[in-house]
């Protein structure tokens, strides 16, 4: 998995699900969530995404950016798991899962870009 990953053509009305695990791991993470158009950015704190899932509805004709910022207090592996669920509950495409290895003093960055169907 690369630092930046992407979903395209996500169905209208689908839902993004974000999880950060393990719950008691020696690290913290938060998300800067941005939406195209005149929509304010929002921050999802650690408590929202760990263990999650944080659910975010996705609308037609939009683009979204999910910036994950992690900080490790000691050596650990954090798992960021993202998936998109279609309105009927089925998974869209395949989940994007980052296994992030870190040590004390490591801030880490991962980005998910989502484009929905026009």
């Amino acid at each position: 998995m690369r630092t930046i990953e992407m979903y395209e053509n996500a169905p209208d009305g689908s839902t993004l699900e974000v999880r950060l695990t393990p719950e008691g791991g020696p690290f913290t993470g938060n998300v800067l969530f941005s939406t195209s158009g005149p929509v304010d950015d929002v921050t999802w704190p650690d408590a929202d995404i760990r263990p999650g899932p944080k659910k975010q509805p996705l609308s037609r004709g939009k683009a979204y950016m999910v910036e994950f910022h992690l900080a490790f207090m000691s050596e650990a592996t954090a798992t960021i798991a993202t998936q998109i669920r279609k309105p009927n509950g089925d998974l869209y495409s395949t989940p994007k899962v980052w296994e992030v290895d870190g040590q004390q003093g490591d801030p880490e960055l991962r980005v998910l870009i989502i484009r929905t169907e026009a």
Partner: peptide, 26 residues
């Protein structure tokens, strides 16, 4: 604490580039 630091970093570095790219991708 990390969230507070991140918010400072976001305030300090946010430009119109992110929104511009998002609007183009949409």
């Amino acid at each position: 604490t990390f969230l507070a630091i991140n918010k400072r970093a976001i305030d300090a570095t946010t430009s119109d580039a992110r929104k511009r790219l998002l609007n183009i991708l949409a």
